[in-house]
Write a protein that binds this DNA or RNA. Structure first.
Lengths: 234, 234
DNA sequence: GCTAATTTGTTCGTATGTATT
DNA sequence: GAATACATACGAACAAATTAG
């Protein structure tokens, strides 16, 4: 169900993510957008107000609507391509620390319910692969979330989920640029690493769980590096 | 400057807080509200959508708008004594993980500017103690923040600051309940531990920095445990 | 199961007020 | 002051979901 509002919203968002509209730039006037999309002003204003709610735009009365810098990310750099990449590595580095700790705690504290959550996520991951699908991002996230939940300390899960948006560009990047590689083989590696982590946790071996998670995320970093290299034509 | 939308919004909100509209109840239809307030449908819909954004209402297509139950903020603020305490330990556990990692990275990556930030925080901490003040929370936070900043990965600082609210109850609790103990002696211990961390970082010894931070936070946990024990009369 | 009535969702067009340049 | 651009409000029409008969 894509309403006109949805379409305008999506078009403007992709203008921003493609760099046609960059932080600080002013959008066309509402009148201009009405003509560009051949819709009424209500549609434009609804789309704009959605983007305001997402902190993507800021509208100044009598002046116009301006693209905001992505909230926390504005602090360091501005050039979009590099920032995203640098950020992706920073996020991965940070995630490595909290997820390794979470895995260790999960090994010590998980319940049967947590065990089932992890198993379900892995089964669905595998099922998708067997069906030839490479769309396993959701199952990947589910597995990592299950571990964070099993840590018995809700802050691990909270923070991991808060970083959800920051993590997705990585997936998008990888998904888009790894096309040249054998995605299925790559995802099978991921699944294998997940199984190792799960086994260590189920065995209640905290050190092994931590190590398996660290290995998994180190490999992820390499996969990201390769994908980034491809994206930059290296 | 109260727009019509503001008035309708305020009226409906007070209907709810006064109990005229209770959770689960259906609002009058948009037509009904138009007549009651003598405004157009756009005004009604704008007010309703504001309440949706606040999670006060839920609207079902073809049915109506319903008052939602307040979202059980039980997690953080409700039952203060036990929940807060459990939470305080969970926060400390989580902080231990990210701050140890941050300290290790800081040892490897800090610049002169970071070194100065840490030194300033420690000097001010010490100065305050010498002056007989025990209000050093700000300097404590400044030191930990400086390390997170020196990690070269802004997510450590971001998350630490996001947990600021969660951290403060600990300080409050400690500050309130440790009155019986010799606070100055206790804070001198904290300062000594801070110095050890700083020295390891300056010496660029990542392992020592990590260990010193872990020791510091483990001691903090003990200090918290003692304070909690006092609070509960144990 | 179908139809009709009710209710919200979406879109349009227009008019007036207000802030900025 | 004049022009531009957003803010607020009105009225109307049709689409889509739900419910009652």
């Amino acid at each position: 169900m894509t309403s006109l509002t949805d379409k305008v919203f999506a078009a403007l968002m992709s203008d921003i993510s493609d760099g046609r509209l960059r932080p600080g730039m002013r959008l066309p006037t509402e009148n201009g957008l009405m003509q560009r999309f051949s819709v009424s002003r209500s549609v434009i204003r609804e789309a704009i107000s959605r983007m305001q709610a997402e902190r993507t735009l800021e509208t100044r009365h009598g002046v116009g609507s301006f693209v905001l810098a992505p909230p926390a990310r504005a602090v360091m750099l501005d050039s979009p391509p590099q920032t995203t990449l640098v950020d992706a590595f920073a996020i991965l580095e940070f995630r490595t620390e909290i997820e390794c700790a979470a895995a260790a705690f999960a090994a010590l504290r998980h319940t049967n319910a947590h065990r089932r959550q992890m198993a379900d996520a892995l089964d669905q991951f595998e099922q998708a692969l067997c069906n030839g699908s490479t769309d396993v991002v959701a199952h990947d996230i589910a597995f990592h979330s299950a571990i964070a939940a099993a840590s018995g300390n809700r802050y691990f899960l909270d923070v991991l989920q808060q970083m959800g948006r920051g993590v997705s560009p990585r997936s998008q990047l990888a998904a888009r640029e790894i096309a040249a590689l054998d995605r299925v083989a790559l995802l099978r590696d991921v699944l294998r690493e997940h199984r190792l982590i799960e086994q260590a946790i189920v065995r209640r071996d905290a050190d092994d769980a931590r190590a398996a998670m660290r290995m998994h995320l180190a490999h992820s970093r390499e996969r990201l590096r390769i994908a980034a290299g491809l994206a930059q034509g290296v």
